[in-house]
Design a protein around this nucleic acid. Structure first.
Lengths: 210, 210
DNA sequence: AAAATCTTAAGGGTTTTACCGGATTGACCC
DNA sequence: GGGTCAATCCGGTAAAACCCTTAAGATTTT
């Protein structure tokens, strides 16, 4: 019996392409969804073996859908398919109970491999991802590292608004060194290493307007 | 003779999926690219009939690649494939000489249709897009065209992607001082004084994704 | 032909970041 | 009452960003 797959991605064209690839490999794509809600509903109806979820979806993102699906269809194993390599996404996904984490920037073979591993009861992470996760665990920085503290969010917002560390410090009435420490910890937690990426992250989080 | 296609998208998995779909339709995907630079180089080598370009690509976006390709391979017709429906993107793409504008959220059939129309010398815009364009023309919604030169746009994109000046220089094969000059002129023109604001500006202009 | 802009490049300077150590306090939790 | 964590602070260093000036050669505009 072929492996029965639910495929969720907000771009129909991408879904069709992936479906074609997966069916070439002998998998059976029994359902599709364009957002997290749909994915959850379809999972409930179809009870697929594997749910492949994009992280960036409207209405409900992949993490939310993964959590919902493991509730209503525990036998369904979730594989996340995304462009994001940041530790914070990976760790959040792992905590949501996903079994595979595959990057869209990789060859389709990785997705195929992930499906095989995961349906065998194993797990699969794209190679760069493994490093990130291992690093996070080893350095014990792994903690709820996706959750920035209130203060860190505040600093991040100011940085994304273009304030220098000195300005941040004076705005928050703290020393420059403290502001610097916050900035450093933010970057550590997010696995980000330049201001530019920090700004893009803040925009994604809605902390600042583009 | 089948239509010869160059396919550019920064996600390999998406490319493979689209390739599978296009070859099912009898098209020949003769080359792939993961960024605007690669796309331009491959177009020069292969002189394809059609170049399918994602808008959001690293190093050089789809608009930049479209301009470059129409220079070095005038017989190549460009079809943009993207998730963006905003008038701003569409009009900019049209000014760059693209012949087709297809949304990733649509069925693959639209891309197939676009390729057929465009290679016949016609044009193709996904239906919502046509409205957008007509509206824009009627309302004379003139998109504030960038006063930045092509080179400056290119540098801006790289900076917003988090590249250091040194990296920008080596990517563009220019000296660090030149890259610095471009950066300075960009800030001067835009009256912007920090990287953070530069990044936000680049995002608003659609040069990079948040 | 003259003016303007673009692209390239450079010298020399200050300020800011990014990363490396470390430390102390207070709060909250079990 | 020991553990963990957020928040605060400090010293230092190398790299990068930022700021100023100048200028040659190509292309485009006027």
């Amino acid at each position: 019996m072929p492996i029965r797959i639910l495929l969720a991605d907000d771009h129909q064209m991408v879904r069709q392409g992936l479906k074609a690839l997966l069916e070439q490999e002998g998998f059976k794509v029994i359902g599709e969804a364009a957002d997290g809600h749909q994915a959850t509903r379809r999972a409930q109806e179809l009870l697929p073996d594997i749910a492949i979820l994009d992280l960036a979806m409207p209405l409900m993102n992949g993490i939310g859908a993964a959590k919902a699906i493991s509730q209503i269809s525990p036998q369904t194993k979730v594989v996340v398919l995304t462009m994001h390599t940041e530790a914070q996404y990976v760790l959040e996904a792992l905590r949501a109970g996903i079994r595979g984490y595959v990057l869209k920037s990789r060859a389709a073979g990785e997705l195929v491999q992930a499906i095989r591993e995961v349906s065998r009861g194993s797990t699969f992470l794209s190679s760069d991802i493994s490093d990130t996760v291992v690093d996070a665990y080893l350095n014990k920085v792994d903690v709820p590292s996706d959750t920035l503290s209130p203060r860190e969010l505040q600093v991040l917002q100011l940085v994304a608004e273009g304030k220098t560390t000195k300005e941040v410090a004076s705005l928050l009435n703290i020393s420059v060194k403290t502001a610097e420490s916050h900035r450093t910890r933010i970057m550590e937690k997010l696995d980000i290493h330049e201001t530019a990426s920090l700004v893009r992250y803040a925009i994604r989080r809605g902390l600042v307007q583009p």
